[in-house]
Amino acid sequence: MTASTLAPIQSALHSAGPQAASIEHLWWVFFWICVVVYVITIAFFFIAAIRGRRRAEAVDNPAHDRRLGIFVSTCAAVTIATLFGLLFSSVATGNAIGTFGKNKPGQIEIEVTGHQWWWEVKYPDALAPANQITDANEIHIPIHTPVLLRLDTRDVIHSLWIPNLHGKRDLIPGRVNKFWIQADRPGVYRGQCAEFCGYQHAHMALTVVAESSADFLKWKSHMGEGAPTPMTPAQLRGQQVFLSAPCAKCHNILGLDAYGTLGPDLTHFRSRPTLAAGQLLNTRGNLAGWIMNAPAIKPGTTMPPNQLSGQEMSDLLAYLETLR
């Protein structure tokens, strides 16, 4: 029922791209310096405590205080120096990441729009706007290529976070935030919304598939194709169910008279790894359950329950099966 076998290691310490790698490197620098500082400070503390336990009488005179002053000043100076070092390394890393994709040729641009509680993904085509690809809850990117993400939201503030590839960036209404990601290793990475956005903030995940350029282009051209014509009678009946039931009001299928833009685009949705923004594995059984009663699985979702008879459901599933 859930995405358990799919979830890769969604972790900032398992970087698969240059930005995440720089951040991971910076993290370890900070971590070890902080560990050393902590150990030294606590050591000083315990040495002082032991010394203090051994005294019969408190010492409080100007001569002694002068020695204490040297201790405190030295520690303060070391602290300042350490902080400056950390500042420089942080700013340097930040600059490198911030200007990462500038002026690099061969970039891919992807628009990600946040909704409560799913991700709308568009691959705009500057040369032929009609060829824009619309997808949901997944991103495919070629490896070794900078990808510019433009972030927008339809409702509240969300935050896109794919820890294996980069830190997070907020999706704020009225702003278009932009940042570059790049994957250097093929694989499937998981991202998740990281800004509290309402009831199902916990179930707003995104899959990032990093693949070779060839595979990416193949995927992209396939995504540009419309849905196949239904062949079997069940599929035909299923298509009718789709059009007459509430489905077509909200969902879009390329090549069909269904232009709904309220919910995720379904043209190729059976090829995605998950349903419901990462909550369910994309299986026939899960799909049936989701269509029947989505709010029971994801309370608060805008997808309503649907009263379909057994026959209608099985026809609909047969049709949806073709949307790969």
Partner: peptide, 23 residues
Amino acid sequence: LMIVLPTGVQIFCWIATIWSGRF
């Protein structure tokens, strides 16, 4: 980062106090 320093100085002063006091 800078705000660490004043609190750090407080901590060092306390350590100095413990060192020289009867704990």
